[in-house]
Design a protein around this nucleic acid. Sequence first.
DNA 1: GTGAACATGTAACGGGTTACATGATTGC
DNA 2: GCAATCATGTAACCCGTTACATGTTCAC
Lengths: 193, 193
Amino acid sequence: MDVKTLCLGLLSLGDRSGYEIKKTLEENFRHFFRASFGSIYPALAELERAGHVVGRAIPQAGRPPKKVYGITPTGHTVLGRTLAGEEPRHIVRSEFLVLMYFAHLLPPDRLAHVIDDMIGQFENGLWADLEQYERTAPEMTPGQRFALGYGRAVVTTALAYLKRHRAELLRDAGGGAPETPVVADAGLAAAGD
Amino acid sequence: MDVKTLCLGLLSLGDRSGYEIKKTLEENFRHFFRASFGSIYPALAELERAGHVVGRAIPQAGRPPKKVYGITPTGHTVLGRTLAGEEPRHIVRSEFLVLMYFAHLLPPDRLAHVIDDMIGQFENGLWADLEQYERTAPEMTPGQRFALGYGRAVVTTALAYLKRHRAELLRDAGGGAPETPVVADAGLAAAGD
DNA sequence: GTGAACATGTAACGGGTTACATGATTGC
DNA sequence: GCAATCATGTAACCCGTTACATGTTCAC
């Protein structure tokens, strides 16, 4: 699934500009999808060229004009077919967890900082969740509630895990200081350089 | 953090071939990182060129020869510096959840299939976790236990969430059949095509 | 006056995946 | 006989991010 399909899906819920799509993404898809302007604007242009959406420039007082897009019947058909034909993937790519895996190679203060950063990010996300839920809960579809609820459940667990195991990791990982690297296997290491 | 750093990190735990790195990734990084041969082999070649690892071809009876790499002291230094200097990201990109968000646009049987698929994947992951934990728990570092434990906690929550809300979603999302698309805003949609 | 929010768009770059090329052995 | 496992490597491709270009208004 690419950004094009995502834009089409969002437009199926109501007319929006590229800028507004980005905002919706940040508010509602925070926990599981993100896209930059550099992919949204070209996607919208391509969708318009293909006739799946139509754009209309809206002049605004004291603001740059915005280009609001609406989905066409063709767009609707294509969206339905695309969504139904996907074998959806679920990809997590966490440099954070890789770093934790190699915690013994980090200076203790750095390790603490990285964990606290992650905790902070998750807390912000959760706070934003709550704030957003109160604003939009009534008009949400079951699917939206399901996706948002999933994100909330997972982030809550993740946050609890980090808080529960932070001290333990900090205590136990403090062996391999950066100045005394533990050589795992002398064999090849000695041969090189 | 790129595949190069990851390979270097894995090699700091012991000598391995590219093929074995891939296997380790599948076993231990399942829940938070994956890489294909197309990125691992070039990464290893580049690391060797830079003097961070040394490779040695091992002939094998009845098998293709393997090229086992070991990290050099220089490699160790670089690894430490790289890990310490990273602002690690944590990225989730779930087409699955996007699809759930648009559940009302999917045929009910398709929706059920997609959810069951995800449940199956998570269950396989969890089963593999257990199996792997029993094999490697004793020699794990605190960081490894932390990262693995995080993955297990999150996947367990995700799985429980899917199972708990599956029926509910299937029941409530059954309104928007594909043949009666709900037009969100007649304004632009009517103007196009 | 400085930064944030509003607003759109392009081009270069990067890094990873997919697919291809090659080939032996083992288990079904 | 066919698929899976072992084993390495290359090249084309995709698609997304980052950075740049441009400009206004409002709040501190």
